[in-house]
């Protein structure tokens, strides 16, 4: 599939502001930061989680436990794929039981990834509450899932793609909306 960039939704400054707002909302809603734990979904959700944790540290002077979740083993479409996706490490080195867990991902779309992540988290223990933070909510949910914290709502068509680029992975901070250009070639 080939995509053409259609519009830039967020630039570096935009991402920074969105994350700062999300962080403030998290702190406002949960009051006691020491009860928090934050878990990012690989790959970009993990980096966003790290940034949020850093912001919390800057604002509240509290280091909250940070985990990384690889949801591959929980995917519901494994039997549909031609080869097995690469499994990366899940690193949750703290006990999530009784904690308020902020689950972080870059884009909320069908909700299936979040479903996987919820199943995975519950295998690690029994959190008091799980809240979901996403940088972009692009709609088109296929499961009854909603985010508690949203950086930006972006209405999209199914032909479009949201590409979140982060410095840690892509060398640049930006979010662009792309359009499939060879849609007619797709069968």
């Amino acid at each position: 599939m080939v995509f053409r960039e259609k519009a830039k939704i967020l630039d570096e400054e935009g991402i920074k502001r969105a994350l700062l707002r999300i962080t403030h909302e998290i702190l406002e809603k949960n009051k006691v930061a020491s009860e928090l734990g934050i878990v990012g979904i690989r790959t970009r959700g993990a980096h966003l989680a790290q940034r949020i944790a850093k912001l919390i540290d800057e604002i509240e002077r509290v280091i909250i436990p940070l985990g990384i979740l690889d949801i591959t083993l929980y995917r519901d479409d494994l039997t549909l794929l031609s080869t097995q996706p690469i499994v990366h490490k899940t690193e949750i080195d703290f006990d999530i039981t009784g904690k308020k867990i902020i689950l972080v991902d870059d884009v909320l779309f069908t909700g299936r990834t979040v479903r996987c992540a919820l199943d995975a988290l519950i295998d690690f223990g029994r959190p008091k509450i799980i809240q979901l933070a996403v940088l972009i909510d692009r709609g088109h949910r296929e499961l009854p899932i909603r985010a508690d914290y949203v950086g930006k709502n972006v209405p999209t068509s199914l032909k479009e793609n949201i590409n979140v680029k982060l410095k840690e992975v892509d060398g640049i901070d930006e979010v662009v909306i792309e359009e499939k250009i060879d849609a007619q070639l797709e069968t």
Binding site: T72, L73, A120, D123, F124, G125
Partner: peptide, 9 residues
């Protein structure tokens, strides 16, 4: 090493 040593894969 998890408390629930099982994934649904």
């Amino acid at each position: 090493l998890r408390p629930i040593k099982k994934v649904p894969t």
